[in-house]
Design a protein around this nucleic acid. Sequence first.
DNA 1: GTCCAGTGATGCAAAAAAGGAAGCGGTTTA
DNA 2: TAAACCGCTTCCTTTTTTGCATCACTGGAC
Lengths: 298, 298
Amino acid sequence: MRHLQNFRYIEAVMRAGSIRRAADDMNITSSALNRRIQRFEEEFGFEIFERLPRGVRLNPAGELLIQHFRQQESDLRRVQSQVADLAGERRGHVSIACSQALVPYFLPERIAAYRLKHPGVTFTVNVRDRRAAEKDLSEFNSDLALVFEPVQMVDFEVLGHLPQVIHALMRHDHPLASKSELRLRDCIDVPHILPAPEFGVRALIDIALSGSTRHAQPSVESGSFDFMRHYVLHENVLAFQIPIGLRPRDEDGLIARPISTRDIPPGALILGQRRGRSLPVASAKFAQDLIATLETLQ
Amino acid sequence: MRHLQNFRYIEAVMRAGSIRRAADDMNITSSALNRRIQRFEEEFGFEIFERLPRGVRLNPAGELLIQHFRQQESDLRRVQSQVADLAGERRGHVSIACSQALVPYFLPERIAAYRLKHPGVTFTVNVRDRRAAEKDLSEFNSDLALVFEPVQMVDFEVLGHLPQVIHALMRHDHPLASKSELRLRDCIDVPHILPAPEFGVRALIDIALSGSTRHAQPSVESGSFDFMRHYVLHENVLAFQIPIGLRPRDEDGLIARPISTRDIPPGALILGQRRGRSLPVASAKFAQDLIATLETLQ
DNA sequence: GTCCAGTGATGCAAAAAAGGAAGCGGTTTA
DNA sequence: TAAACCGCTTCCTTTTTTGCATCACTGGAC
């Protein structure tokens, strides 16, 4: 869209930190870009960059402006989506930020089911830790976020949720495999591996242990739940995951056992959008679909 | 702002009903305007006008788009206002749509008081009947509306209110001047004049009479409360008005007497904005000022 | 201190985009 | 049937934007 060209350039300058580098990125000359920005500032009535010796940086006015532009761009997409919808074209695009647990089973299944009904709708799936997911939302990079234990929840509007009890993951031949429910202390007394601190599963475990005298001593920490699941097959340790990220039935030699909610309260898997935003048609409908599914599972 | 140029043109075409006339209004040739619109439609992805034999008309997609543009324009003004505010410039503009009753005393007083505190803030006061006031809000022509008995209230977010008992207005020498409170039947039994049907005062009177056997028989109907007030001085009739539009004390030979609330329930003077909109700084602050005043009067 | 790499700003000519004039084919109106 | 409008297209001119070369300035390496 032509009239958002200025926004593209301004955003590029913001990212690059200097007009010349941004010009390079956008394949125009720095003089042209420089004049565009000067001209925009004049029309806008305020400077939006502060000129530093080694480049430029957005000033507070610029921050506000960027926010406005993002909103504007998202609004335009929504209008286009609404128009497409009333034109009878069931097309559109859904972008969703999600935790790793949703990647293997849940989301592929839901998206495939949705695309069966609406083949014209395309998807972008951004795997993000919970902080990054919320950032994605507030910067209009994703329409929806499906996150385990989101953190700050400012600008985050909850659309649906599903409680998730943390499970321990182990091989068939693990000593604890015989029990149907585990206590946390049993888990950390045996060799175990943990997700990195930015993840919700880890946060819940850390909180549960904070009041205790015992400490977790993970032999491996990782940012990949997929890696951890595979690692368990090689060394006979415990890993942790939430049920939505686990296959209903064990198929690759792994067993999942819930950890007593006396030790770790259930965490929440939450579906949300940016507060106050009206979503494009396709995203709103897919959200409804997800909400219904979450309610079914509950 | 340069990037809203397309909007101006599209709106002009919408108003004019034909590209050629719009081109004339906007002082460009029809060919140029025609191409702008074709190009915009191509970029947007959908036609926004339906081509008729005698001109063009917005299609539903176009309606949606116009709505979006209006929102966008208002948002931009809000951002500029916020930036001005954080730059320490206490300037800005407030546009308010109001009923006639606010014109003589209330609004001039409030605006003058506000401008004493913030001399940089300018005002636009649009006198509108209650329907037009709401339309003004939803089309982003006014930031605020202060209306007696608004009608539909869709897209209307109430910020504050003040009950108003309808008063009868008469000369000193009127037979009813001796009573401290009037009954409605006494008023319509004597010669009287009424506001036009689109006004809230009239609506309340009509509703009150609808269950009765008596009918109002106004000798004069008018859209101007100012006219009616002056008319009472020439012919010894009753007129009607709400207290906020009356001077605290009679000064020009007129007397106001409340009509019993057994006959006509108090109407509401309501301050509102377009639902969900974030107002520019100056408008938001002036609204707070008004709300406080309304609460004091209550 | 000096130099150098890197920055934003600016004058000027070239390129690109937008605008204007005229006219075509169509439909409504008188 | 003729005149009046309409949207749209073509050709050419005008305006705007871009690219290139260059200036003035700053911070860091040496």
